[in-house]
């Protein structure tokens, strides 16, 4: 019961924070709309009779990128609520710190999933984005969001300043999404492997794309999802170990 009380509180804060709405909802929606409009106005009509590979790739890429960057949400909550004087006020309530903490993670995941489902929905209904298997998309978004939050927790536990931890999340997200893609051009074998399977980002993209895009390949989709879950599990173990040594 208390978990849901705290969960609602964090979800509400995410929904009323103007900068968060701007950066994690309006900005990706704007990017999706702009990129896809530019593409569709220049593409030949037969490229998107039923769906468009280009708009699908762009939209899924942006959704997954912002899901990953969304790790900054938990960074904010940890520094504002658990690594500040407010910590004592929360500790003084009959609700355990763990309940506050896990409810904050759950609320961040739900907020990011809803905002990214919105992005994919806009892409699907207005820009010929083909989404394939909805359950697979949902699962990939969930584990990507969970991975991002765990990454945020890890960096918050190990870094002293909120700004440093937030920037670190963003840099890691951009390196995962763009870095190995660039690397793949110069070293096709290693780079290609990394940009397909080597990061949570690429694994998530693989799961969504293979679930119904090009030629539906559920084996490939499950492989991508499995890799993403494995990355998330490893990250959870690392966070648990660091969390025991450096508790909040």
């Amino acid at each position: 019961m208390m978990f849901f009380t705290v969960f609602k509180h964090y979800l509400k804060r995410a929904c009323v924070e103007p900068m968060g709405i701007l950066l994690y909802v309006l900005l990706p929606v704007g990017l999706v709309v702009l990129n896809n409009l530019v593409y569709l106005t220049s593409a030949a009509e037969y490229d998107y009779v039923v769906y468009s590979t280009a708009t699908t790739n762009q939209t899924v890429f942006i959704a997954m990128l912002f899901q990953l960057i969304g790790g900054t949400y938990i960074v904010d909550y940890i520094f504002l609520d658990f690594k500040s004087e407010r910590r004592w006020r929360l500790l003084a309530t009959p609700v355990s710190l763990n309940t506050h903490f896990f409810a904050a993670i759950a609320a961040s995941i739900v907020f990011l999933m809803v905002s990214n489902l919105l992005i994919l929905g806009i892409g699907h209904f207005f820009f010929y984005v083909y989404l394939g298997n909805f359950a697979m998309i949902f699962a990939a978004l969930f584990f990507m969001a969970l991975f991002a939050q765990l990454l945020g927790v890890l960096l918050s536990l190990t870094l002293e300043k909120k700004a440093t931890a937030s920037i670190a999340v963003e840099v890691i997200a951009f390196v995962m999404s763009f870095g190995f893609f660039v690397f793949a051009q110069s070293l096709p074998v290693v780079g290609g492997f990394l940009s397909t399977y080597g990061t949570p980002f690429s694994a998530g993209m693989l799961a969504i794309n293979r679930s119904g895009f090009y030629n539906p390949d559920m084996g490939g989709a499950f492989l991508g999802l499995g890799i993403l879950i494995a990355f998330t599990a490893v990250m959870a173990c690392v966070v648990a170990i660091i969390g025991r040594r450096r508790p909040l």
Binding site: K12, R13, S84, E85, R86, W88, R89, A92, T93, P94
Partner: peptide, 21 residues
Amino acid sequence: NVLIKKDMGIVTQEITVFTDL
């Protein structure tokens, strides 16, 4: 601890209310 906390209140030295609510 939990039973005791239910009947205690603490006013912290710094302002610890949520500024976004």
